[in-house]
């Protein structure tokens, strides 16, 4: 019998469309030892976990665990099964993802888990930084978890992952596109985030028709998500997204747009949201695809 891990009943979460997708730090602190729950840390800095993590948490490394070593793609069903089995995760396990940088990579890991249809994957609101800021415990002890039997499930990219062909078709049908990068990247003034290396794409600008809503607008300074009301004001009010719109989000390599994908699909309940993980690193290098620019010419 599968142990049922209860939802976090926090009032803030109840206003989201899928409150079961998010947990608060206070709730997690009380449920760390729940049977059927596994906490997984996914960071941009691949060494952060080793310097200290939430007690009992396993590490899922976006670069070494989730990506195929050769092809620019995610692991296949066998690779994913092997990974999760080794972390003691079964198909019924509740996974709570958390990480650095306001959960960019945690949202990305959750999105990849969703490609494999993992049913109960949640994010820790506020991620690693909030946990630390609240003085909650960290450990460097790596848990020894009994390997589990995670089944081999074919990855299904159709529902929540967009490829460049999908984006081209989306432009033709005037589908909604959300560019979640910084305003400077969107305008074409910069090729990467301010203060980051200006490499990776040969052209600057954005996909035609895309609206710019930087991912950060969905987050508070402590890394938590804004309230449902605040999020609706941004995405439905300002941006004018309507429930049922076919939406594609993108950024530079797909991790910041995983954050926005989570906001739109899980917190606001939009039924058709895809993440274009090829993002600007692909689009800005593709020969002859259309680009819009609101700044001067930028060439890499």
């Amino acid at each position: 019998m599968r142990p049922v891990v209860e939802r976090d009943p926090a009032e803030k979460l109840r206003a989201y469309s899928h409150p079961e997708r998010l947990v608060t730090t206070a709730w997690l602190a009380d449920h760390l030892h729940d049977p059927g729950l596994v906490v997984a840390e996914s960071d941009e800095d691949v060494l952060l976990y080793e310097t200290g993590h939430i007690p009992g948490a396993v590490k899922i490394d976006w670069l070494n665990d989730l990506n195929d070593a050769v092809t620019r793609d995610y692991v296949d069903g066998e690779g994913f099964a092997l990974l999760l089995s080794s972390k003691g995760v079964t198909r019924d396990t509740t996974i709570v993802f958390y990480g650095d940088k306001s959960n960019w990579w945690a949202a990305y890991a959750l999105w990849v888990a969703s490609l494999f249809g993992h049913a109960d994957a949640r994010l820790l609101d506020g991620g690693r930084q909030k946990w630390i800021d609240e003085g909650r415990p960290l450990t460097t002890e790596v848990p020894e978890r009994e390997p589990a039997e995670y089944p081999v499930v074919e990855r299904d990219d159709k529902a929540i992952r967009a490829f460049r062909e999908d984006v081209l078709a989306h432009i033709a049908t005037r589908g909604r596109l959300v560019d979640v990068r910084s305003p400077q990247e969107y305008s074409g003034e910069l090729l990467a985030m301010p203060d980051y290396p200006q490499e990776g794409a040969l052209r600057g600008g954005h996909i035609p028709g895309a609206a710019n809503v930087p991912w950060k607008r969905a987050a508070n300074d402590d890394g938590t998500f804004k309230t449902a009301g605040e999020l609706r004001a941004i995405y439905e009010g300002e941006l004018g997204l309507a429930h049922g719109d076919d939406v594609i989000a993108y950024c530079r390599i797909g991790e910041r747009s995983s954050h926005t994908w989570f906001v739109l699909s899980q917190l606001l309940g939009f039924p058709q949201v895809r993440n274009y993980d090829g993002s600007w690193v692909e689009w800005g290098n593709l020969v002859r695809v259309p680009i819009e620019r609101s700044a001067g010419t930028v060439r890499g």
Partner: peptide
């Protein structure tokens, strides 16, 4: 900073 272990490495 200690919270950037890769860069510290």
């Amino acid at each position: 900073p200690p919270e950037a272990p890769t860069t510290r490495g």
